[in-house]
Design a binder for these strands. Structure first.
Lengths: 144, 144
DNA sequence: ATTAAATAGGATAAATTTGTCCGAAATAAG
DNA sequence: CTTATTTCGGACAAATTTATCCTATTTAAT
């Protein structure tokens, strides 16, 4: 459903947010170890998220990644997915047609409308804070 | 959501089924032209679907692909997707974890359960006949 | 039998995604 | 100021997906 890059990006962001709940900055190394992802590849994804303002990064010793509480409430899962995989999953045709809509639908158009809407709304309604909290209290996991 | 191969496979199968409604066999060339797909690549996909018994193929002059009415009613969109892309989209973890379930859920597990179930049920409930009919009466399209 | 038309299948190539390497830039601390 | 630590960013490499090419096999028709 999501690209590998997006999976890593989501997991990394949730972990960063969880640590930020405790005012702790995390390094790339810690992140990659925690979410079990290739370090250099994860770095690329985090750079992109940082450039897009979805996480904050700091260079130098004691540097690393963090996310303030305001962002945790503002930024939705949707924003992470959209930043990494783009909006094709939200708006594109299920069969890859360029011009597919209610007027000129592909054979699966109507079948997909509802599911896509559910997915989009779910992602748009899910805050990073919510995901970080669940992880923080041990309700959810990022490994295995 | 689906791989390119899967998109081509779905479109090709629907077209084959539609033509079979009129007892007409279609060649690879016609299929690729109709669904706007690379011919040789489409051939690979159709070979695989034929090996799996999802479409019937015939060699030689007047040969081509077809699907009898019984299969149209039996075979679901689910079967096509499963044959080409496998079952990861139906059963795999949204974040790619190997061991993610209700007991040890990833942060998005609960959020995805419903959506995934909707998708699976929809694909399992959609027959090739239904899709072929919609195309046949001009309600849907495979191009553009 | 011969021919032509069609799918089957192996080998290969191109494109994209995933992953690695290394030097540059920033910055905290002594 | 120097050093060590960390992210940044470009170039490169590997793996996977997508796409092509060519020959073999099957089969209908003459």
């Amino acid at each position: 459903m999501f690209s590998k890059a997006c999976e890593y990006g989501i997991k990394a962001t949730i972990f960063i947010a969880q640590k930020s709940l405790h005012k702790t900055r995390v390094s790339l190394k810690e992140i990659a170890a925690e979410i079990n992802s290739p370090e250099a590849f994860t770095a690329k994804i985090l750079q992109s998220l940082a450039r897009n303002g979805l996480v904050d990064s700091h260079k130098g010793p004691t540097g690393g990644f963090e996310m303030n509480r305001a962002k945790m409430d503002t930024i939705k899962l949707y924003d992470i997915v959209n930043a990494i995989d783009g909006d094709n999953i939200f708006v594109g045709c299920g069969l890859g047609l360029k011009h597919c809509d209610a007027n000129k639908p592909c054979p699966v158009h109507d079948k997909f409308v509802g599911i896509r809407e559910n997915l989009t709304q779910m992602l748009k309604n899910t805050t990073m804070y919510e995901l970080a909290s669940g992880l923080d209290i041990g309700l959810t996991q990022l490994k295995r």
